[in-house]
Simulated assay, not measured.
Amino acid sequence: MKNLILYTCLVFSYFFYAQTNNIYEVDYVLQLDHEVLNKSLKTMKNQKVKHFIAKHADTFEEVQAKLIFNAKAAKYAVRKQLQNDFNQKSNFFEKHAGGKSTYYYDNEKKIAYYTSTLINKTNVVYEREWKILKESEEILGFRCYKAELILDQEGKMFVWFTNEIPYPYGPLRFNNLPGLILKAEVKNGLITYLATNIKTKRKNKPIIEETDHRFMSEEEYMKELKKNNPLFEGF
């Protein structure tokens, strides 16, 4: 069985190297760890926040998202956003999966950004720095290595990436590592993004299409939000 898995991974890795013009898709599912949630709620002092989180946790539904990529670029979004279906039932946890924004990584320009839902026709550029750790685990038959996000302000954030698929992509804002990210844990393990399937599409079309959107850094973006909306003054 182990030899079969190893053979499959080797073939798959070669396939990625050889077919750089193909488009690939990765399905992710957003999961909530209720055990971590219950521990957090026990020590939470703000009763309003506690009640708000508990209320939404009780109505949690799995969120599905998709990463589409080739050698040049990647695009990630909640699946119904990719399907242009905005009439389905709203799910609070969709915001954690990306909400209505689309996330891009231009591998030729080495730039990561997402579309703003608050300022029209704006792409927000961001950067991520990682510390690669010694731990590893197997996901979908691939050996994945653990990495920690440096200077994150929302608690411990870890991802697992495989250099057997040598592209710096992943779900949401997780990218810029020497391999595809198949798993991510945020908010001290409360929420997990887990890859459930990888497949290839024969059609070759641009991942990033030309738009008239302007680009700005996260710092510039927050300044403009605060300037135009008093609700953001405290951020």
Score class of each variant (00 low, 15 high):
E94A: 06
E94M: 07
A97M: 11
C144L: 05
E138W: 12
Y113L: 07
S116G: 11
R143C: 09
V125C: 05
V125A: 05
K95P: 03
Y114W: 14
K110E: 11
T102V: 15
E138C: 08
A147Q: 08
Y113K: 06
L149V: 14
Y114D: 09
K110A: 11
N107D: 08
N107F: 11
K146T: 12
E148I: 05
K109R: 12
Y103C: 11
I139W: 05
Y114F: 15
I150Q: 14
E127W: 10
R143Y: 10
T102E: 08
F93N: 03
F93K: 05
K121Q: 04
V125W: 05
H96W: 10
L133N: 05
E138R: 06
Y103E: 07
I139G: 02
S101P: 09
E108D: 04
R128F: 07
G99C: 12
K131G: 07
V125R: 00
E137M: 04
N120K: 13
A147P: 13
K110M: 10
A112P: 07
A97K: 06
G98C: 10
T117I: 10
C144F: 01
L133H: 04
K134V: 14
L140I: 00
A112W: 01
F93P: 03
E108L: 13
K109V: 14
H96F: 15
C144N: 00
Y104W: 11
I139C: 04
T122V: 12
E108C: 13
K121W: 02
K109C: 10
K146F: 14
G98T: 04
A97E: 15
W130G: 01
Y114T: 08
F93H: 07
T122R: 04
K110N: 15
G99V: 15
G98Y: 07
N107W: 04
E137V: 02
A97T: 08
S101I: 10
L118P: 04
E127C: 09
N120D: 11
A147V: 14
